[in-house]
Design a protein around this nucleic acid. Structure first.
Length: 357
DNA sequence: AAGGCGGGGGT
DNA sequence: ACCCCAGCCTT
């Protein structure tokens, strides 16, 4: 690492333009002796994996309110953690979050490791998150490389090697630029730059603190980099979802998904498997119980990471006594929003109940 | 090395 | 409506 003029330029920009975020300790705060809380840095960085700042904010504040320390989170009920995470996506993160909290609280005396290697050994912490926590919470000059950093540095050095093959080159470039002084602020500065100025489309080069030293800017490649390997297209799967409404009290029949895999451990309404070439004519054979099922004309559409889903929604009023003996339960209409329902299931319930859930 | 794993925002 | 984005884990 070396303190280049570019490094200094970016830190100066950060001092003036850093976004105020609930988990962030600003340079000004730090001068007043405020230090980052490793628990909050860890929590925010896990939430920020594959997820935008805007989506994370409310979830972060809710988690800190419910569980102010890693010991509180370690002692929390698994189901309560899944409920609090519902809607944020990539639910294995929530399961690993709980596992990690228990290891830190029970085996490490409630103290997070302060090195990249120590952090990397914990569940849910990979190369990016380990470096981010080491740099931001513990002032270690670890090279923090996320998607923003990949884009910013591939432009800065005009790296034309397509991703992901360019990753080692980019990591080396970040290691070279990261200063011994304020490595955490530098990492956050590069990521902020990527999120606000060096954006995927139409980067705002005119107001960029690196506009004079950026190789892609000089060669007219800013908008086209980084090069990427072509992505494969998503197949479409179909299925049926059944919203059974208790005629006595309006409650809704729910069940738990298997603990691993897609939406593992989350709550859903009963339904068919989701598959390409789903036999729509036989949809009712997947119903959880016999009833006067009415098909909604508007299907629910949802896109996951690797496939599109089209769900036909069926609805019926059923007597309370008709609950099948399979572990499903009647969930009160008023507290439906507190269930561990992923977004696709909230869409299904909104369609069936004509209401936001 | 490749594939599974959500959801939100921009256009 | 469609397109784009992006870390960790398992196989």
């Amino acid at each position: 690492m070396r303190a280049t003029t570019s490094t200094v330029d970016l830190l100066n920009w950060y001092d003036r333009h850093a976004r105020s975020l609930p988990w962030r300790v600003s340079p000004r705060d730090r001068q007043c002796g405020i230090v980052p809380d490793p628990y909050q840095i860890w929590l925010s960085e896990v939430m920020l994996q594959q997820t935008t700042v805007a989506a994370v904010k409310d979830y972060f504040e809710k988690f800190v309110r419910l569980w102010p320390t890693v010991r509180d989170l370690a002692a929390a009920d698994d189901e309560d953690v899944m409920k609090a995470w519902a809607g944020l996506g990539y639910y294995s993160r929530a399961r690993n979050l709980k596992k990690c909290a228990q290891i830190v609280a029970n085996d490490l005396g409630g103290v997070f490791p302060d090195t990249e290697d120590g952090l990397l050994a914990l569940p849910g912490i990979g190369p990016y998150t380990a470096a981010a926590i080491a740099a931001i919470a513990f002032d270690r000059p670890a090279p923090v490389v996320d998607g923003n950093v990949e884009r910013v540095l591939s432009r800065f050095h005009a790296i034309t090697t397509p991703l992901p093959a360019a990753k080692p080159e980019i990591r080396a470039a970040m290691a070279d630029l990261t200063p011994a002084d304020r490595p955490g602020d530098f990492a956050q500065a590069v990521m902020d730059l990527g999120a606000t100025i060096c954006t995927p489309k139409r980067p705002a080069c005119a107001i960029c603190p690196w506009t004079g030293s950026c190789s892609a800017r000089a060669s007219g490649l800013a908008e086209t980099l980084p090069n990427k390997a072509p992505k494969k297209d998503k197949p479409t799967r179909e299925g049926a979802a059944f919203v059974a409404i208790n005629s006595a009290d309006g409650s809704v029949l729910l069940r738990r998904r298997p603990p691993r895999g897609l939406l593992g451990g989350m709550t859903e309404v009963p339904g068919s498997e989701w598959q390409e070439g789903f036999d729509a004519a036989a949809a009712l054979s997947h119903a959880p119980l016999t009833a006067d099922w009415r098909r909604h004309t508007t299907p629910v559409r949802h896109t996951f990471t690797h496939f599109h889903l089209i769900l036909t929604v069926w609805r019926a009023q059923v007597p309370a006594a008709d609950r099948p003996e399979d572990g499903s339960w009647w969930a009160d209409r008023g507290t439906l929003g507190d269930e561990a329902l992923p977004t696709v299931m909230r869409k299904v319930l909104a369609e069936a109940l004509g209401d936001e859930v």
